[in-house]
């Protein structure tokens, strides 16, 4: 494989383009200068840092180091998914982190042991880390969108849910509508990207492979596999988190515990 290695000077040229954003912000008084500066610095520092970490992980090439990195990545994804949720309930942290964990690890394991059957070791960082990254990124989006929709609908449509209960509905029958809506909302982004993949834009991973000199036909095979892996991880994670929260919001006696749903600000104060 052959590709042009970038010098820091070349990266610097690209970075200068942030001045375009800055100029627009100043010209139209958007007040984004400070955010742009912070965002630029974070991009540089965070990526340099992860570059250093990955460099040493790749050199070390031990299963426990890779597992450690994957675990940290998963925790960060889980925490981020909760933070994006506008309503909280007791147990949301455990439910969400568990959903992110189980879905992304199960599908990544399937990818490493079944789809990529033939790699030297399952824990090869070259495969395990980027695969997990893609699972987590998409699962995180699915969960936060799906869970947000579920908790918000359950809260605002509480009177409909309760009316169903008073007419003899089971807890499942009473909340089935909001659950379906939440799962559809959570899975729509990945379905949409499967619809347009290759037509409007090339996915990041495929672009990366092409830049690194991989044959387009090879890069495409990887991308197809990844799309399906990501779609199933998203579905598993979204369904898991919504179903776990459903169990927290109802008792075994089919009673709806609406007061458990609190706005993020209120829940954080407690």
């Amino acid at each position: 494989m052959d590709y042009l290695q970038l010098s820091y000077l070349q990266v610097g040229f690209a970075s200068l383009l942030i001045l375009v954003n800055a100029a627009i912000s100043i010209w139209l008084r958007l007040g984004l200068e400070r955010s742009l500066l912070v965002a630029s610095l974070r991009t540089i520092v965070q990526l340099l840092l992860i570059g250093l970490i990955l460099q040493s992980v790749f050199q070390f090439d031990q299963w426990y180091v890779v597992i450690g990195i994957l675990a940290i990545m998963t925790m960060i994804a889980g925490i981020t998914a909760v933070q994006r949720n506008q309503r909280r309930y007791p147990g949301i942290w455990l439910d969400t982190i568990l959903s992110v964990w189980v879905s992304s690890w199960a599908i990544t394991a399937f990818a490493l042991f079944v789809v990529l059957n033939g790699i030297d070791q399952w824990y090869q960082p070259q495969y395990a880390i980027p695969l997990m990254g893609m699972m987590l990124g998409n699962t995180l989006t699915g969960i936060s969108v799906g869970l947000n929709s579920f908790t918000e609908t359950a809260y605002t449509r509480h009177d409909e849910i309760e009316t169903m209960l008073t007419l003899g509905a089971t807890r499942w029958e009473a909340i089935a509508g909001p659950i379906r809506h939440a799962l559809q909302t959570g899975m729509t982004p990945i379905i949409n990207s499967m619809m347009i993949v290759g037509l409007v834009s090339l996915p990041g991973m495929m672009t990366g492979q092409l830049l690194a000199g991989v044959e387009p036909a090879e890069a495409v095979k990887y991308q197809i596999a990844i799309m399906f892996l990501v779609a199933s991880a998203t579905a598993l994670g979204t369904a898991g988190s919504v179903l776990l929260s459903f169990r927290r919001l109802f008792t075994a006696d089919h009673q709806f515990l609406r007061s458990r749903l609190q706005l993020k600000k209120v829940a954080e104060k407690r």
């Binding site: 009177d159 009316t163 003899g168």
Partner: peptide
Amino acid sequence: VHGNQVPPYRTDVVYLPQRPV
């Protein structure tokens, strides 16, 4: 009355709230 007896119970004992939904 508990557990899965509750939903059928609520068809025998029906609650009507102040604000109809």
